[in-house]
Design a protein around this nucleic acid. Structure first.
Lengths: 341, 341
DNA sequence: CTGAAAGCGCTAACAG
DNA sequence: CTGTTAGCGCTTTCAG
């Protein structure tokens, strides 16, 4: 089907020299005469010679491929992280193979297996929300392949990670709510096994304490990050005898569902209830009212993740280094009462 | 860095047989005794042997990699198409390498070059909006590599394509507007060189004619698919002496910007102006009012694209086959006056 | 029934 | 300065 591409042999034959001469010539080996080098390079360019990565891979046992596993492809957050990863990968001459776990533990395992079969050199992963067992990741470590986690992490003592300061971010949200008059602040979290769930909850608790509010368990909800479960969580909150006057959710997708449900109940945002999201999806500025949200440095997160990956590739046995990035709260209309502005 | 993985040689040595025996045993070659086959397979499983794709690639000149080039990673539309491609690719044991052109002609060329160097077997592409010259695609064809276009296409006589029926879709939108009382129907298109721009414009014109409306050039705008240029187009439309009472845009991203701009002008959707999008991004249901839009069978589009790709892989010299999929208009609140409902 | 050898494209050590 | 050879992992003749 595919035309055989030009190889060293072809060039060597045409020039009447040996394959190794061509190989050396192309890489400016000092043993080759300047004049010959020029002739070799000229013909190589003319024939559009490019080295066969399969052959190189076999020889050097390097594929220059990174396996990236993310929970979904549809979220702006992940796409943006990927663009950061790809940028750095390309600088190093690496390719990125993206697989989505669809938030499924089983698919995550399958993806790892498949990518290992394809001989990726290592992995950059954001853990699926279902994942509670980490043996598939330990397998990667046992095979001495580079592994980096971003955003949602685990096995922190063995694996380099890039995260954001979730604790501070949700502390600040709580304060922001309090400053804007809210006293019954609710948080809709994700599955408890996710690192981001836990960290954001801790920040929420700390924020409440600092504001002199006490934690009320009925204002703490968990969902599985799907719009439908976020909707149900919202219904429970709105159905309380004393419903919350402020809600923030673990991400914008969740909060969009919350918003829809609130609107359905005829409650006004921000007048009756304040709303804040997380990760600042593109459409945060399109909805009405525009959504206050925590901006993640997503592109940078990808760059840093890839950076850590290459530290691992280059330095065998480096000890895991973790990077924490800062977020910032963009205040829009959903969290500030119009009367106040 | 990476542990060398188990090879046929390792198994052969351990079993005290030759490499070729193991190779054959693993593939149930009739020449190998049943008993030996069992022993070989058992050890292979035990040692977690998987064939080295580099070696296979070298030998068979097949990499089982497909290069996919899309205009951006951030749009739900493309992510969803990719999921369809990946599904079919996986069934065939292929991997997908995704590259984004960022709507740039130059990046599109670079991506093709890079992926060719990486020896992908072929390409599935959605053309960037900037692309007017097609020689980089012809290069793929000249190399006898499989190439399939989806959504935005070109070189239709040489390359299999998957598209939607853009003509009918925008005809129906025009009719829908007309039925809902609009008489001054505007269309914000994309760059003229894009196949989808042209087809949707043709449907718009045909729809107008069928509704007994005449085409007014001032109601036809072009933008470069960015929110900012969509905003400018909207400003021009709203600034007309007799502004349109209905607008549809080439995609939802454009229409979100239109919506924002209309809202800023204090004009009411749908009461003063009707609005319809294209491609039904996830957030169409989140905005207020919810956006009427044309649903694309995105996942299916990916599956079909990959299907065509494998037809090309399997049948040398097959003549290009094109598939056109149907869309459907989901009517939501942005295009039906409340008084009417 | 099984093994040896060649070759896919390339580099590197070893000879000239 | 240049060529020969071996080997990365695998399949496939060709010999036994």
């Amino acid at each position: 089907m595919v035309k055989r591409r030009i190889s060293l042999k072809d060039i060597a034959r045409e020039l009447g020299v040996s394959i190794s001469t061509v190989s050396r010539g192309l890489r400016d080996h000092p043993d080759i005469s300047g004049e010959l080098i020029v002739r070799i390079k000229e013909l190589a360019r003319l024939r559009r010679y490019t080295p066969n990565p399969m052959a190189m891979g076999l020889l050097k046992q390097r594929t220059r491929m990174i396996g990236v596993i993310i929970p979904d492809l549809l979220t702006h957050f992940f796409s943006s992280v990927i663009s950061g990863i790809e940028e750095v990968a390309k600088e190093h001459g690496y390719f990125v193979i993206i697989s989505s776990s669809n938030e499924s533990y089983q698919k995550e395992c399958e993806n790892i297996e498949n990518l290992m079969k394809a001989r990726v050199e290592g992995f950059i992963v954001c853990v699926s929300q279902e994942t509670r067992d980490y043996s598939h990741f330990e397998q990667i470590i046992d095979a001495e392949m580079p592994l980096v986690f971003f955003d949602r992490v685990c096995l922190k003592d063995k694996v380099p990670t890039v995260t954001v300061d979730n604790f501070t971010a949700s502390r600040l949200i709580t304060h922001h709510f309090h400053e804007n008059g809210a006293r019954r602040i609710a948080y809709i979290s994700g599955p408890e096994q996710l690192s981001i769930s836990e960290e954001r909850k801790a920040g929420y608790l700390s924020g409440l304490r600092e504001c002199g509010l006490k934690f009320r368990p009925e204002y703490f909800e968990e969902c599985d990050l799907s719009p439908s479960s976020a909707t149900m969580a919202t219904q429970r909150l709105l159905g309380l005898g004393s419903p919350p006057d402020a809600i923030f959710g673990i991400n914008d997708t969740v909060v969009f569902a919350v918003m829809k449900e609130i609107r359905k109940s005829g409650i006004a945002i921000p007048d009756d209830i304040l709303l804040v999201g997380f990760t600042d999806e593109f459409h945060a500025t399109v909805v009405e009212p525009t959504l206050t949200s925590v901006i993640h440095p997503t592109h940078e997160m990808g760059q840093v993740a890839a950076g850590l990956f290459f530290e691992l590739v280059e330095n065998v046995g480096i000890r895991p280094r973790s990077v924490q990035l800062e977020t910032s709260l963009v205040v829009r209309n959903s969290s500030v009462k119009k009367s106040k502005t």
